[in-house]
Design a protein around this nucleic acid. Structure first.
Lengths: 209, 209
DNA sequence: CCATGCACTATAACATGTTCTAGTATTGTG
DNA sequence: CACAATACTAGAACATGTTATAGTGCATGG
């Protein structure tokens, strides 16, 4: 990871709420993320090479860097897009399970299995997420917010309390740490599922609400 | 992170139990890790440049790579050495606290504060730990084992059960995830301490033993 | 319509992780 | 001690993330 960050003059605002920029720009941004995820799916983190992304997205390298100031930004933005989709799908679904904890376990299990169906893609996105430095903090927090949304939806909490959010945060930490362990072959899929279930059971208990 | 791994012919065995190699080799290995940690302390992950490490350790670049096949291996080995020291110190200490959970919270708090006293060093080691790929799985597991040891010592469990170990694992996940959040300025020191305390309280309850 | 500014392209240049090569030193073994 | 094997050194070479430069085209305000 050679030189430092890239303080450009004219900023491309991160999509916050509605999509910014001209239609052509939105299209370029989409093509870039499409290319990123396609390369990630085929060969993981190492296969996401900036020149390859630019080529596949049919933009110049400089344009790629104008939209995403680093490889990590790119991959975390990709993860955000994926999680947005997952969250939106969740919100249109009925989640099975007796208790809120059951439903959360169900959602975590289902999402984890979906991620595990594409190991390279997951490896690329999750490693970037964990590796992100301060310059990508905003993108990482976006993803964190999406995880919170998903958990809140799963548990049917419209407006979670501070305490709920603290618990969600812990579960998100455990989730991501286990995905990292899984992509680096230090944990099996069943290890991951067991640990997730255990942590939900323990963390959602002891909770007052 | 350019090319791929480095499959050398003659292996340098990872120190497992007793130190391997000739005295000169042990000395080189020590110099290399010293240089790594010094550079990390001064400028974090980015300041740990392989040429700089080799220079400071007074070995050739090729030798550096013979001892540690990548920058990540190097930094994770550094973290392992630091944690070994922490663990050994712990084992010679009396840990205050009424309950095992209290003592674990104490140890986590104290160790975390120590890490936070050297933000650059911590940033370098923890990011490498999280970024590690399959080729560094062994080193990462070493660190994981050290964390388990520390937690077991803190709680006074000579031979933890499978369940204990599962809990330790979850706490280690939360710990590392929060350190990552702290080094990327997404969490304050007090956020980290609060979350650690909360997770210990909740995870050590609900536990049968 | 024209001038100005800005986004984009192509491409080179640079920084740093990693690998390779040739030669030299060291170490272990008969 | 002599030899063979292994380890080390210096340095070049290569791969890929990142930055910089020069030119082109398009859109917008006058």
């Amino acid at each position: 990871m050679p030189p430092k960050a890239n303080p450009r003059s004219s900023e491309i605002p991160t999509p916050k709420g509605e999509e910014p920029g001209s239609p052509a720009q939105r299209d370029r941004r989409k093509r870039i993320i499409d290319a990123t995820l396609a390369l990630a799916a085929s060969g993981g983190y190492n296969a996401v090479q900036m020149r390859a992304v630019a080529d596949k997205a049919e933009v110049a390298l400089g344009t790629l860097y104008r939209y995403f100031p680093s490889k990590v930004h790119l991959l975390v933005a990709g993860l955000a897009r994926e999680f947005q989709q997952t969250r939106d799908k969740l919100e249109r679904t009925t989640i099975p399970g007796e208790t809120p904890a059951d439903r959360l376990v169900f959602v975590l299990g289902k999402t984890t299995r979906a991620l595990q169906r594409d190991p390279h893609l997951t490896e690329a996105m999750v490693r970037a997420f964990m590796f992100a430095d301060t310059t990508a903090a905003a993108e990482v927090e976006l993803v964190g917010g999406l995880m919170e949304d998903m958990f809140a939806t799963a548990m049917g909490k419209q407006e979670p309390t501070e305490h709920d959010r603290a618990i969600f945060h812990l579960i998100a930490d455990v989730w991501m740490a286990n995905l990292i362990a899984w992509v680096s072959r230090r944990a099996s899929a069943s290890d991951v599922h067991q640990r997730l279930e255990l942590s939900v059971r323990l963390l959602i208990n002891g909770t007052s609400s």
